[in-house]
Amino acid sequence: MRYLKNQRGFTLIEMLIVMLIITVLIAIAIPNVTKQSSAVDEKGCKAFVQMVQGQVESYRMDFKAVPTIGNLESEGYLKNGETDCPNGDLITISAEGVVTSAKP
C-alpha cells in the first residue's frame, strides 16, 4: 500500500505542455507534406509523358504511322484506362507525334 502512495504521475500542466509541443510540430509538418505530394505528382506526370512518347516512337517504327491514344491502347502499347497523368492531367498526341500533358 505504501508503495502505491509514493508513486508520482504527470501533472495536468505537464501533459498540456507535451500536447502543445506535439501540436506545434504537426502544424509545421503538415504543410511541408502537402507541398511535396504536389511535386511528386508533377514529376510522375513528366515521367509518364516520357514513357508515352517512347511508346509512340515504338508504334511509329512498327506501323509507320503516328498513333492516337486509342491506337496505343488497342495495340497493347498502353494499358486500358491508363491515359492520364497521376495528377489528373490529360495526355495528348499531336499530328507530329509529340506527347504533351494538359489540365482537363
Score class of each variant (00 low, 15 high):
56 V>Q: 06
53 Q>M: 11
63 F>M: 11
47 A>D: 09
21 I>F: 11
38 S>P: 00
82 E>I: 08
59 Y>V: 00
47 A>Q: 08
56 V>A: 08
33 V>D: 00
9 G>L: 11
76 G>Q: 02
17 I>N: 05
47 A>M: 09
52 V>Y: 03
79 K>V: 12
6 N>W: 10
45 C>I: 00
86 P>G: 09
59 Y>M: 10
98 V>L: 15
39 A>C: 02
76 G>S: 00
75 E>P: 01
81 G>R: 04
14 E>Q: 08
14 E>S: 03
85 C>R: 02
58 S>E: 12
92 T>K: 01
11 T>Y: 01
59 Y>K: 03
89 D>Y: 04
75 E>T: 11
47 A>E: 07
35 K>E: 12
20 L>A: 15
36 Q>G: 06
30 I>V: 14
96 E>K: 06
44 G>A: 05
48 F>K: 07
54 G>K: 05
55 Q>I: 01
44 G>N: 04
42 E>R: 02
60 R>M: 14
12 L>D: 00
1 M>Q: 01
103 K>T: 13
104 P>N: 04
6 N>F: 12
13 I>H: 04
96 E>G: 10
27 A>S: 13
1 M>V: 08
70 G>H: 00
20 L>C: 15
70 G>W: 04
72 L>S: 07
52 V>F: 04
19 M>I: 14
28 I>H: 04
30 I>T: 11
